[in-house]
Design a protein around this nucleic acid. Structure first.
Length: 395
DNA sequence: AACTTGTTCAACCGCTTCTTG
DNA sequence: CCAAGAAGCGGTTGAACAAGT
C-alpha cells in the first residue's frame, strides 16, 4: 500500500502561485518561522499542499536568495562540483550561496549540459597527440575552467541555428516576474545582451593554471592523505612517506577534491589496494586539524567537509566507486545518479588522435592516472573487465 | 499577423532519507 | 528497534514566451 499523500489534496490549488498567495506565505513564515510545512497551509489560510509551500518559499520567496544571472565563477563551480558530485543538486547548491538546488538543476539542464555535450561531441576539437580526449574533468574547461591546452582556448561550440537562447535574457526579479505573470499585458520584453549571448557559444580564454592532472606527475609513491604539516605521509597503501604540501597548497579547495580523487585512482591503477577506512580516518584527522580544504583557502564549511569525505573516500554505499566509474559507466546511467551523459561511442568515433577507440576507452578508464605518455597508455590497454579498481571496489 | 518551433524554469510528483515517539 | 510521518531531493512536466518562418 502506498503512502498517504502529504496532505489532503482535495480542493487544493495547483499551478502558479499568485501574488496574494506569496504575500500570505511570506507573512506567515515571517511571523512563525519555517517548518511544520504540513500544517502551514491550513494555519496560514492557503489552499496549497505543504510541499508546495515549502518549495515556493525555498525556491522563490526566501530573502537570502541571490537574484540575477549565474556568474561565470558560479558556472565554473557548478561544472566542477558536478564532475565530482554528480546530480547532487542540493549539495552543489550548498556551495553557491543564494542559489537553490532547483535553480542549479535547471541551469545545468538548460545551459551547461548541452554546452558540455557539444564540447565533447564537436568534431572541431583539435588536440595534439599528447592531449587527452574530453573527460568530465577537462570538460569543465569548456565553461571557462583551467587548462594547459591552448587548443581549447578560443575553440567555439557550434551555435545551433535559429533563435537566440533565452538563457541570455535577463532574469526578472522574483517578485516582478510573479507580478508580470499575473498581469501579462504589462510584461516587458526582455532584452538580449550580446556579450552574454556570445559568451554562451564561445569558450573564452582563461588564466593559465596547470591542469590538475599535471599536479601529480611523478608522484607514484604509496601513501594516504595529503599532509599539510610537512611531516609526510604515515599511513595508507604501503606506508611510504611523501610530502605533497606544495602541490596541494597550490590548489583551490575544489581542485583539491579532484586531485585527491586522482591520487586514489592512481594507486588503484597501479594495482594497490586502498583501504577506504584508513583513507577516511586520514581525512577525518585532517578535518580535525583544519587541513581539509583549509589549504590557504579559509575554513571549510560543513558541506565542503562532507563532500570531501564522501567523494574522496567513499562509504559503504559505493560513492567512491561511482566517481571513478563515472568515466566509463555513465553513458548508460545505470546507477541513476546522473553522471555525465557522455556518449563514449561517439566520442571515440569523433576522436582522431588514437588509432583504436579501445585505446581511448582504456585511457578514459584510467583518465586520472598520472601516467600520460603513449607507452603508458598502452599499459592501460586492458579491457574494462580487467581494470584493477574493480578488485578493490566491488559494490 | 499568425503560426510554428525551440527554450526556459516554476512547480509537481514520487521516492528516499531523516526524525520522532 | 521499529513504524509513521515529515522533510528533502532529484527527475519530469507543461505553461509561457521568444524568435523564426
Amino acid at each position: 500500500m502506498g503512502r498517504a499523500p502529504c496532505c489532503e489534496k482535495v480542493g487544493l490549488k495547483k499551478g502558479r502561485w499568485t501574488r496574494e498567495e506569496d504575500e500570505i506565505l511570506t507573512r506567515y513564515i515571517q511571523a512563525h518561522g519555517e517548518g511544520s510545512w504540513r500544517s502551514l497551509p491550513k494555519n496560514a489560510g492557503l489552499l496549497r499542499c505543504g510541499k508546495s509551500c515549502r518549495l515556493r518559499w525555498i525556491n522563490y520567496l526566501r530573502a537570502d536568495l541571490k537574484r540575477g544571472n549565474i556568474t561565470t565563477e558560479e558556472q565554473q563551480l557548478i561544472v566542477q562540483l558536478h564532475s565530482s558530485l554528480g546530480n547532487r543538486w542540493s549539495v552543489i547548491a550548498g556551495h553557491l550561496p543564494g542559489r537553490t538546488d532547483n535553480e542549479i538543476k535547471n541551469y545545468w539542464n538548460s545551459h551547461l549540459r548541452r554546452r558540455i555535450y557539444s564540447f565533447t561531441k564537436t568534431p572541431t576539437v583539435k588536440t595534439g597527440t599528447d592531449q587527452p580526449p574530453p573527460t568530465a574533468m577537462n570538460a569543465a574547461i569548456a565553461v571557462g575552467g583551467s587548462s594547459t591546452s591552448p587548443a581549447l582556448v578560443n575553440m567555439t561550440v557550434k551555435k545551433r541555428k535559429g533563435r537566440t537562447s533565452r538563457s541570455c535574457m535577463k532574469k526578472n526579479s522574483l517578485v516582478s516576474s510573479s507580478l508580470e505573470r499575473s498581469n501579462k499585458s504589462s510584461r516587458p520584453k526582455r532584452d538580449v545582451d550580446d556579450t552574454q549571448r556570445n559568451s554562451l557559444t564561445t569558450l573564452t580564454p582563461v588564466p593559465h593554471v596547470p591542469f590538475i592532472k599535471d599536479q601529480f606527475e611523478g608522484t607514484k609513491t604509496q601513501g594516504s592523505c595529503a599532509d599539510n604539516t610537512g611531516e609526510g605521509i604515515k599511513e595508507g597503501g604501503g606506508g611510504e612517506m611523501y610530502d605533497n604540501t606544495a602541490k596541494l597548497s597550490s590548489l583551490g579547495p575544489y581542485q583539491w577534491l579532484d586531485s585527491e580523487m586522482m591520487r586514489l585512482d592512481e594507486f588503484l591503477m597501479q594495482g594497490e589496494s586502498v583501504d577506504l577506512d584508513v583513507q577516511l580516518e586520514g581525512l577525518e584527522e585532517m578535518e580535525r586539524e583544519g587541513e581539509v580544504l583549509g589549504l590557504n583557502h579559509g575554513t571549510a564549511t560543513e558541506t565542503e567537509k562532507a563532500a570531501v569525505v564522501t567523494v574522496s573516500c567513499g562509504e559503504s554505499n559505493g560513492e567512491w566507486y561511482n566517481y571513478s566509474s563515472s568515466h566509463k559507466n555513465n553513458s548508460s546511467s545505470s546507477s541513476g545518479n546522473g553522471w555525465f551523459d557522455w556518449d563514449w561511442t561517439s566520442s571515440v568515433e569523433c576522436c582522431n588522435q588514437w588509432d583504436e577507440g579501445e585505446k581511448m576507452l582504456a585511457w578514459l578508464w584510467g583518465s586520472c592516472s598520472t601516467r600520460n605518455d603513449e607507452e603508458e597508455r598502452s599499459d592501460n590497454h586492458s579491457s574494462p573487465k580487467e581494470d584493477p579498481r574493480r578488485r578493490s571496489f566491488t559494490v
